[in-house]
């Protein structure tokens, strides 16, 4: 690791002030991606601002028609929460597929979303459910939040505080894990909330998570796996690496979308 200064934030305001003051700094949430990145010297921030002790950022509650999850809520808490399991079971199931039990005990939803790894699971849920990402400054719809590989709409001293998931009529997530890392080789989240039907794909896109309009149209008419028959995603613009070619990923998007729709029905 390169040298960095370490600051422990007392609350969100304090964290934002520390971020601003420290200049080239990074927020430390659970650290399950950031710490390996620092260890490999792929990042070298001058300072880390630790929000691990900020209690107000943690928690799960149903508020009106939204399921609200605090940014520092651990994956394990989302996976096992009775509230999440009842409101959006697909979201709890998704959280249970992230990393492994020890990673889920430490990693956070806010950290995952802010990092926007192109193979992470939560971005698919945010986009696939039409979530709103609430920050220390504003509310950002998921459609405008994810900007590309590891890029988001977040400003330098902006902190995610909550994620608001509209509770859908039905939703499903299917993931084909990379056999080695168990990140999503392809993951597809589908949901239906009145006339709003969404299909979000993670793991596959060169620019990170994306929606599939053609599939959404088909599911709007008939929300079933069968409605997706014959709809093929083109390999162009999809990732190609040692684990899967763009062609294979394109094939998997079709298969996972059907599985997600079937599990949501």
């Amino acid at each position: 690791m390169y040298k960095f200064a370490y600051h422990k934030a007392k609350n969100v305001k304090d964290a934002a002030a520390l971020l601003k003051k420290a200049g080239d700094s990074k927020l430390l949430a659970g650290g399950q991606t950031l710490i390996p990145t620092l260890k490999l010297r792929l990042a070298g921030p001058a300072a880390l601002v630790d929000i691990g002790g900020v209690k107000e950022l943690s928690g799960i509650a149903l508020k009106g028609k939204d399921l609200v999850i605090g940014a520092m809520t651990r994956h394990a808490e989302v996976a096992t929460s009775k509230v999440v399991r009842k409101a959006i079971p697909a979201l709890a199931a998704l959280a249970e597929t992230i990393g492994d039990p020890a990673v889920r005990n430490q990693g956070t939803i806010g950290g995952s979303i802010a990092n926007n790894d192109p193979a992470a699971d939560y971005p698919a849920a945010c986009l696939g459910l039409g979530a709103t990402i609430v920050t220390s400054k504003r509310k950002i719809p998921a459609d405008k939040f994810f900007k590309g590989l590891f890029e988001t709409a977040l400003g330098d001293d902006e902190i995610i505080t909550e994620v608001h998931f509209p509770v859908p009529k039905s939703a499903g997530y299917a993931k084909f894990p990379n056999p080695a890392s168990r990140y999503a080789l392809v993951g597809v989240f589908v949901s239906r909330n009145g006339s709003d039907v969404r299909v979000a794909v993670t793991g596959a896109g060169e620019g990170g998570v994306f929606r599939v309009a053609e599939m959404e149209k088909a599911l709007q008419k008939d929300f079933s796996a069968k409605a997706l028959d014959g709809i093929a995603v083109k390999p162009r613009g999809l990732n190609s690496d040692i684990h899967a070619s763009a062609e294979y990923r394109a094939h998997l998007v079709g298969v996972m979308a059907k599985r997600a729709a079937a599990s949501a029905a």
Partner: peptide
């Protein structure tokens, strides 16, 4: 490297001591 921190199993190679 798994140890228990406040009762939860975590990977101690991916946690700063200050955390």
């Amino acid at each position: 490297c798994v140890v228990h921190v406040n009762g939860r199993a975590v990977k101690s190679c991916t946690l700063l001591a200050v955390q």
